[in-house]
Design a protein around this nucleic acid. Structure first.
Lengths: 371, 371
DNA sequence: CATGTGGATGTATGCGCATACATTGTGAGA
DNA sequence: TCTCACAATGTATGCGCATACATCCACATG
């Protein structure tokens, strides 16, 4: 016997008023007498009434929530059904080994920014992972129940995106600046990497740089490489046509690249990596092989994740405002919702180069410095 | 002129069928002829039709999404409206200082687990931060548009939770095991901390232990302290009545506690911390003061966050399965949705003690070991 | 050739709310 | 005292879909 959920009608009956009054108590409290409000609220409490979001959304033609198409994070489809184990607490040695970071810090931060701004504006955020055979169904479901959508680059096929963009506004984060109708939010990847490369050339006098790229289909990775090349060109150095090697933005792949570089023999003076995880992996490999950073080789990253401050040496990197990326996306989306006439917007957030020990700008601290 | 969104009626008209057939193409494709399906799908594409989630939810009496009441993460209300700055890329020294972690890793992992399991079952996740003066309104909005809800402990006042629990099932993560009607998922905090403490006593022969607690209102912090006391009692040691000090689960507070301990003079042989961030903060303070860990003092944590592997020495800790916590919550929620008759469930997930360098179980690696 | 059967499709209705508009009641002003 | 304006509340309707039930049609069976 699934209990019938209370509706406005039940509340109205119990409070001795009409359903319009009940609705008003929630939507426009000012238009209702204090006394009536009290009676209605009591009925609401007694019955355990909660307005149906679906009915509200249908009647008001807006849902009050925005969608986030969650990226395809690695291995989501490798998880088996959960099995419940119970038993004694295991106690075991956990020897140091290759460190594998949990989750994706970049995405977590962007999401946090989205949450913050959504909260500030009183909207909820609905997330779905559009992946697997049911992808388009999942995506439609999401698009059907939100007022607008934020999409991280590479998370949704163009075709699907175009379809739903006819219904609700879409803001793309870090996507290719295509000639599309979406709003775009991105960070100054090219500018940041150019400044980083210029720094290595100008301040450290390095002319032997190798760029370690990211996935070939990543717009960010491409922009960063472009910035790198601009700096080389300005400095009159030989401009690489392609990255020296390509990683997949993971630390373990970075380690593999580091080992490969070592195996090749002569190490470039500077290893400019397309992101922090790659830089940290390269650093792992070099350090393990006894190569001194920055004395023997300089390593730099991009993103500004926490782990770059916890490594030894700390990694010189370009910090991009991940949280602001999320905030700006929501801000732009809500702006468009309130005025659909606006022309497609395109915002680029500034980045900053953080000079630390791995490029040699700061002396490597030893434990002795603390004592 | 806000374009009218296409509805089933528009699609039906264009395809020359009835709305029932259009609906069936989406909901029960098997009952429709291949030919009809093709015609309808063409109309859907042409018109850019996406089914309204609100109307679906209203008609079907379920929304296909579950709610997550996002915790009150620190400082959300301190954010000012976003201001857009533009300008040249800043390039500046970033000297080493007190490390302040970004975001909350625990929550990120739990969320990831929730996403994974939600994806596996084809449901979306709606998140809202119920905080501030509009808290109950926000919360009702969330509750009204989902089929069930996952609540992290301490994120929702009991009263609000009880109200919405009359409408939809609620699964609580890491909450106090009260005599309520909710399903509960938790980890074996007490057992883990007991095992950790027993290890220090038994394997290391330590009898002089100080427990550094967490917030007084955190059930987890309380359970961990209880486990610690059980171990002391079993070993016949003097059982502390209260934690030696209390942190707030942050690294900076951990550092403050570390400094305070140092200022007091005689350091206990082991500092058993209620969570990793606190342990890392204490470690920061001791290391900076020249105290050797583990030789002079042993430090242990709880949670198993990444940073415990990046510190030097690495921190011995109790790993709790954060991702599984999220997965189990969703699993339980969906189970209940499919059978509301089930009795309230209560699952405790196992934890594991990871013995590393900070308790002395493994030798501290120096850079020389790598070469 | 009449009848029965099952699959494909159409018709009509209600889900729970917001809101335009109608109605009622109250006090101010004439 | 009567009228008018406005505030408070009620009535009726539609939002877009899913679905129970009705209808229709092709084909098998007697």
């Amino acid at each position: 016997m699934p209990k019938a959920l209370p509706t406005v009608y039940d509340v109205a009956a119990r409070a001795g008023v009409s359903i319009a009054t009940v609705s008003r108590v929630f939507r426009r409290p000012d238009e209702v007498t204090e006394a009536t409000k009290t009676v209605v609220q009591a009925a609401v409490r007694d019955l355990g009434y909660v307005p149906s979001g679906s009915a509200r959304g249908l009647a008001a033609r807006r849902t009050g929530s925005i969608g986030l198409c969650f990226p395809d994070f690695d291995g989501i489809d490798q998880f088996d059904p959960l099995t419940f184990t119970a038993g004694p607490v295991s106690v075991a040695l956990d020897p140091a080994g290759d460190f594998e970071p949990t989750g994706d810090l970049y995405i977590s931060e962007v999401m946090r920014g989205i949450e913050i701004e959504a909260w500030r504006h009183g909207v909820a955020v609905t997330i779905a992972v559009a992946r697997g055979p049911r992808r388009s169904e999942i995506f439609d479901n999401l698009a059907g129940r939100v007022d607008g959508m934020v999409a991280l680059s590479r998370t949704v096929p163009d075709e699907l995106l175009a379809h739903i963009a006819r219904r609700i506004p879409v803001v793309m984060i870090a996507g290719p600046r295509a000639d599309d109708a979406y709003d775009h939010i991105s960070t100054d990847s090219a500018g940041g990497m150019r400044a980083m490369t210029e720094h290595l050339i100008t301040s450290h006098g390095i002319t032997d740089l190798a760029f370690i790229g990211g996935p070939a289909d990543s717009p960010d990775a491409k922009n960063r490489f472009d910035g790198h090349r601009e700096a080389l060109r300005s400095a009159g150095l030989r401009v690489a046509r392609a990255p020296r090697m390509r990683g997949d933005f993971t630390r373990s792949q970075g380690r593999a690249i580091g080992r490969e570089l070592l195996a090749e023999g002569r190490l470039p003076r500077a290893l400019v990596c397309a992101n922090d995880q790659t830089a940290l992996g390269v650093l792992d490999a070099l350090t393990r092989a006894g190569v001194r950073v920055p004395e023997d080789a300089v390593v730099t990253g991009f993103d500004g994740i926490d782990a770059t401050q916890l490594s030894s040496p700390r990694v010189t990197t370009v910090r991009q405002p991940m949280l602001e990326l999320g905030r700006a996306a929501v801000d732009t989306l809500l702006r468009r919702l309130s005025d659909p006439q606006l022309a497609p917007d395109s915002r680029t957030l500034p980045v900053e180069v953080l000079l630390r020990e791995s490029c040699g700008c700061l002396p490597v601290a030893s434990h002795d410095d603390f004592s």
